[in-house]
C-alpha cells in the first residue's frame, strides 16, 4: 500500500508542473489588459503613458521569460504571486474564499451520499418495477438540470412559498450554525442534485453487477436473506463505484459552483474565478486554475487510494 502511494504521488508531480507551465503560457496569450480595465473601465480619460507606468509597476513590462522565472520560483515556495487587481497575495485571496466553497462542496457530497445509497439500493432491489423506473427517470433528469437554473427555481419557490430569500454573506458554521446553513444549503442542493443523480445510477448498476457475482450467489444459496446480503457484502463492494463517482464528478462540482455562486451571490472560489477572468488578472487566474487543478488531481488520487484500499485486487495488479 505504501509503495502504491509513493508511486502514485511520484506520477502527480510531472503532471502538476505541466499544468503550471500550460496555464502560464495559455493565459499570456489572452487578449485584454488588466491595467486598462482597472484604470479606464470606469470612464476616466487616462493617458497611454500612465497605463505604461502602471504596467511597469506591476511587472507586466518584463520579458516573458523573466515573468515565467519569477512565477516558477514563487511556485517552488508555494507562493502564487500577487493579484494584479488588488495587489494582495493570491494565496490570501484564495484562502478567504475557500471555507464557503468547501462547505458547499462537502454538503453537496453529503446530500449526494444520503440520497444515492438508499435510492440506488432500492432501485436495484426492485429492479424493473415502477419504483426502479421512477428512480431512474429522477436520476437521468438530475443529469439534465442545469444547476444555476435549479438555483433560480429554488429562489422562486422560497419567494413564492415563504416570501423569504436567503441572506447574503457567509457566517462560519461554528459562529452561527443556523445563519450559516440558511445560506449554504440552497446552493448545496442545486449542485448536489446532479451529484446525487450520478451516484444513484452508479450505485444501482454496481449493485446489480455485484449481485450477479459468484460469492453473492453462494451466499444466497446458503439461504441468507436478501437484505442481509445487501448489508454485508454487496453494499461494501458497491461503495467502490460510488467513491469513484465522487472523484469523477468533482469536476462538475467545481463547474456547478462557478455558476451557482453567481445565482446565490456567494463569495466563493467560483465567483473569484469568474471575476478574475473578467478582469484579466493573470496572476489570480493562473493561481486559481492551478489551485483547482491541484485539488482535482488530489481528489482523484485520494479516490484511487480509497479504491485500492477497498479492493485489494487493484493494489496488487
Amino acid at each position: 500500500m505504501l509503495w502504491y502511494l509513493i508511486r502514485r504521488l511520484f506520477l502527480v508531480i510531472p503532471t502538476l508542473i505541466g499544468v503550471a507551465i500550460a496555464v502560464f503560457f495559455l493565459i499570456r496569450v489572452m487578449p485584454g489588459d488588466v491595467v486598462v480595465v482597472k484604470l479606464r473601465a470606469d470612464g476616466a480619460d487616462v493617458s497611454e503613458e500612465m497605463i505604461q507606468a502602471e504596467r511597469k509597476r506591476l511587472g507586466l513590462d518584463k520579458p516573458l521569460y523573466m515573468q515565467f522565472t519569477d512565477y516558477m520560483v514563487g511556485l517552488a515556495h508555494l507562493d502564487l504571486g500577487k493579484s494584479l487587481w488588488t495587489g494582495d497575495s493570491v494565496n490570501k485571496e484564495i484562502a478567504i474564499r475557500i471555507p464557503v466553497s468547501l462547505q458547499i462542496a462537502v454538503m453537496a457530497s453529503i446530500i449526494a451520499v444520503l440520497i444515492s445509497i438508499p435510492l440506488g439500493t432500492i432501485s436495484a432491489l426492485y429492479r424493473d418495477t415502477w419504483i426502479d423506473h421512477s428512480v431512474r427517470v429522477l436520476a437521468v433528469s438530475g443529469l439534465a438540470v442545469p444547476s444555476f437554473w435549479l438555483g433560480m427555481l429554488i429562489i422562486l419557490a422560497l419567494l413564492a412559498l415563504f416570501n423569504w430569500l436567503p441572506k447574503i454573506g457567509y457566517v462560519p458554521l461554528w459562529e452561527d450554525p443556523i445563519a450559516n446553513l440558511s445560506v449554504t444549503i440552497w446552493p448545496a442542493i442545486s449542485v448536489g442534485y446532479r451529484y446525487a443523480a450520478v451516484a444513484t445510477r452508479m450505485m444501482r448498476s454496481a449493485l446489480l453487477e455485484v449481485m450477479r457475482e459468484d460469492y453473492i450467489r453462494t451466499a444466497r444459496a446458503k439461504g441468507v436473506w436478501t437484505r442481509l446480503i445487501m448489508r454485508r457484502h454487496a453494499l461494501r463492494n458497491a461503495l467502490l463505484p460510488v467513491v469513484t463517482v465522487i472523484g469523477l464528478e468533482f469536476a462538475f462540482l467545481i463547474g456547478g459552483l462557478v455558476v451557482t455562486e453567481q445565482v446565490f451571490n456567494i463569495n466563493g472560489v467560483g465567483k473569484l474565478f469568474v471575476d478574475a477572468t473578467t478582469r484579466g488578472d493573470f496572476n489570480l487566474i493562473q493561481g486559481l486554475v492551478l489551485f483547482i487543478a491541484t485539488m482535482f488531481i488530489f481528489v482523484n488520487l485520494i479516490v484511487d487510494l480509497l479504491y485500492a484500499w477497498l479492493d485489494p485486487r487493484i493494489r496488487l495488479s
Partner: peptide, 22 residues
C-alpha cells in the same frame, strides 16, 4: 468582456461601439 472591449476600442478595431460617459 470589458477587457476585450477596451482593447478593441483602444486599437480602433470596431465599426460602431457603445461607450459611456460618466
Amino acid at each position: 468582456e470589458t477587457k476585450l472591449y477596451q482593447e478593441r476600442v483602444a486599437k480602433g478595431d470596431f465599426d460602431v461601439a457603445v461607450e459611456f460617459q460618466a
